[in-house]
Simulated assay, not measured.
Amino acid sequence: MIPNLAVVAELVRRGNRVTYVTGESMADVVRAAGATVIGYDSIYHKADLRRLEDDPLGLISLFLDESRVMLESVGEEKADVVVYDISVLHAGRILARKWGRPAVQLIPVFASNEHFSYLSSIYGDGGAGGALPGWVDDMLARTATLARDHGVDVPPADLWWQVQDFSLVNLPRSFQFAGETFDERFAFVGPCLGERALGERSFLSDWTPPGDGRPIALLTFGTVASSRPDLFRTCVRAFGELPWHTVVTVPEAVDLGPLPSNVEVRRWVSHMSVLRHADVAVTHGGMGTAMEALYWGRPTVIVPATAIDGPPARRVAELGLGRVVDPAELTPERLVADVLAVVSDDRVRQATAAMAQEIREAGGTARAADELERYAA
């Protein structure tokens, strides 16, 4: 949700009417952005995500179930355009066909086309195509059943694999694998930050540096910290050995134990406000944090904790934007060495600065709203 909240606010500011289907846990945040909320009882919100991080069948099955509940919550009111996040593509694509309306998918991760498959890059052959896992057949059958339940008769493979008429991608084109092969059906608008960049009117609190002149690091593993607390604690110990100030964002459930005096733990804080001042970000490879770090031209050190983290880690390494540490080889000493290496490497500094410039030129929130309005018209 976070990558598109700023777009919602911008669309509303321009006089558009936005209705947002979301679980009740995020309803107030969506209302604050100016949208009308259609709430539903989210299955995803109740799921044990730690158990599903390396289980593609379980995770995609969860997304399919979430799509089913979302579709059940939507009444007969028809929008001009159906806009959907790719994680719930079943709901978005079925609803668009049911209503006979154009659709736009929002892609906060790597996009897929005839030349690159994001799903294969995680669980298959690295993204170049070829055979998909056997569990895909079961998911296709369930997708067909869901479509028929809503009066949509279309091959389930079309709902899943067919390149859509239009997509907004929250990456700059050069960060996308095989970016040169994507045509006008994809608008690479980069991260849509809006008010998050300013830390204003946000459910994430702002942050200001201590002002003591020490280098600053952001350490975040998102919800992965709950399932891999060992990796997270190792990273915390590493920064305890550096004369830096480290901001650690961590879920409520994670107990880090006694902390070094130079480590500040925050539960809900704007990463943008930290990264504005930071020298480096250490993360599991979440695309949102990676894009926010690159927006400010900050290098990253990635410790990929799950299969989903693999593609962003590979891309950061390929483009010289940071370093990747194999979790099996992670020690405080190894992490310290890699952090010091990336912040002192002129080539990394040049690469991250160039990517920051491309992110700004991609257009972000304003361009995303422009593209949506153009497509609707």
Rank of each mutant, 00 (worst) to 15 (best):
F239Q: 10
L242Y: 04
I302P: 01
L204W: 15
F182D: 02
A293W: 12
M272H: 13
R266E: 10
V265K: 08
V269W: 10
A281L: 05
H284C: 07
R237V: 14
V254E: 05
H271K: 08
S226L: 02
E184W: 15
A293L: 08
I216T: 12
S261N: 11
E195R: 15
P299Q: 03
G297A: 07
T283E: 06
M287W: 12
D279S: 13
D255V: 08
L294E: 00
T220C: 06
R276A: 05
L242A: 13
T234A: 04
G285H: 05
S202P: 03
F232A: 08
V301A: 05
T306P: 15
G211D: 00
P260C: 12
V265H: 08
P258N: 07
L256W: 09
R266N: 08
T300Q: 06
M272T: 13
F232Q: 04
H271N: 14
V269C: 06
Q176H: 05
T181N: 02
R233Y: 09
V263D: 09
A178R: 12
T234R: 01
E241G: 10
S226Y: 02
D230P: 10
R298I: 00
S202F: 11
V248T: 04
A217F: 15
F203N: 15
L242C: 15
T181Y: 00
G194I: 12
R266P: 09
L259A: 05
F186T: 13
L294A: 02
P251M: 14
N262V: 08
R228A: 06
T300M: 10
M291H: 10
L275E: 06
T208P: 01
A178T: 05
T220H: 02
L256A: 05
D279A: 07
A253K: 04
A253P: 06
G194D: 12
A217C: 13
A253L: 03
G257P: 02
F188K: 01
L294N: 00
R201G: 07
S273G: 04
V224W: 06
S202V: 05
L219F: 00
V224A: 09
F186G: 06
D230K: 08
Y295H: 14
W244Y: 14
T249W: 01
S227F: 13
P251N: 09
V250T: 12
